[in-house]
């Protein structure tokens, strides 16, 4: 781990200014992913801005009936929030399917969205990785790909996004609120927050340098029955092979997002129109450009069957 200077931010605006002005600065909140990566020098900030003291840990209703979730709301607290459990249970379920209680006690809402891939080649500095070191190549392409993405990938990178929470956020049409160094704020649809790797897999989000996520905003509750179905090898504390976030209305229509199969939460609003009539068509639409290897081709069948299972869960929950 590289030596770094450290400060505790006292205001959001000041934090954003410092992040833009101090060379090599990074924000740290929960630290559960950043510190992990700093220990193996995949992240090597020269300066850390600890934002934990900022007033960004509230969950509040929005005027239009939605929910504004502060960036520093811990995963545990978000999952335990009565409003989330009542009105957005897919989010509570996704949160609880992720990581471990200890990690959820530290991990924050914004940090969860910004966590980096768990590709084992990314994590091994002795292996080629275009995400870690642009232009070095991708060892995973010729290697073990069972945990990797099958859609949205490129010849440069096949890493999957590891978050469960983000998949639920995506199905809920979440937006992130940010502040930039000049004090300006903006909202970014979650669909637009993460980039696909293309030729530049090291560029993972559309945030500007120093731009700080301050909140995630959920629109008014979508109603319907919520299911988050995560499929993994062991029963807990493991990353998804495939996950399905489903919000299903009584008429069978609804929304679907997939996790574990793409570099970002994977949803296709056009494809999901077929949910009531032909759920497999939804998966076929989502995975139409899938590029698989013998290691991970099973994810196509698994995604179909997991959606079937999620729909069955939703039906029986009514």
């Amino acid at each position: 781990m590289k030596a770094f200077t450290y400060e505790r931010a006292t205001s959001t605006a000041q934090a954003a200014v410092r992040a833009a002005s101090v060379p090599g600065a990074k924000f740290i909140a929960g630290g559960t992913n950043l510190l992990d990566l700093m220990k193996i020098e995949i992240e090597a900030p020269a300066h850390l801005i600890d934002v934990n003291g900022l007033d960004l840990a509230k969950i509040e209703p929005t005027p239009d009936g939605g929910l504004r979730i502060g960036a520093l709301v811990r995963n545990t607290d978000l999952a335990a929030d009565a409003g989330v459990r009542r009105d957005y249970p897919v989010l509570a379920r996704a949160l609880l399917a992720g990581a471990s209680p200890q990690l959820r006690n530290r991990a924050t809402t914004a940090g969860n969205l910004l966590q980096r891939t768990r590709c084992p080649y990314f994590y091994d500095p002795d292996q080629a990785c275009n995400k870690r070191e642009p232009g070095s190549g991708c060892a995973a392409l010729a290697g073990w790909r069972r945990m990797h993405a099958i859609v949205g990938t490129s010849d440069a990178c096949i890493a999957a996004h590891p978050s469960d929470m983000a998949v639920a956020m995506r199905v809920l049409d979440a937006e992130v609120e940010t502040m930039r160094a000049d004090g300006s704020t903006r909202r970014i649809a979650l669909a637009d927050l993460h980039r696909l790797p293309g030729a530049t897999p090291h560029l993972e989000t559309t945030l500007d340098a120093g731009e700080l996520i301050t909140a995630v905003v959920l629109p008014s509750p979508p109603g319907g029955t919520h299911v988050y179905r995560k499929v993994r090898d062991r029963a807990s504390y493991a990353f998804a092979l495939v996950s399905v976030a489903l919000v299903r209305q009584p008429d069978g229509s609804g929304r679907v997002a997939l996790g574990g199969i793409a570099p970002k939460p994977w949803r296709d609003e056009d494809a999901e129109r077929a949910l009531a009539s032909d759920p497999h068509a939804v998966v076929d639409g989502l995975l139409k450009d899938a590029r698989t290897s013998p290691d991970n081709a099973f994810k196509i069948t698994l995604a179909r069957r997991t959606l079937d299972a999620a729909i069955a869960d939703a039906r029986s929950a009514r």
Binding site: R229, V231, R232, D233, A235, L302, R305, T306, D308, A309, A312
Partner: peptide, 8 residues
């Protein structure tokens, strides 16, 4: 699991 093949 009849759908996903997860064994418990």
């Amino acid at each position: 699991d009849a759908a996903t093949g997860e064994t418990r």
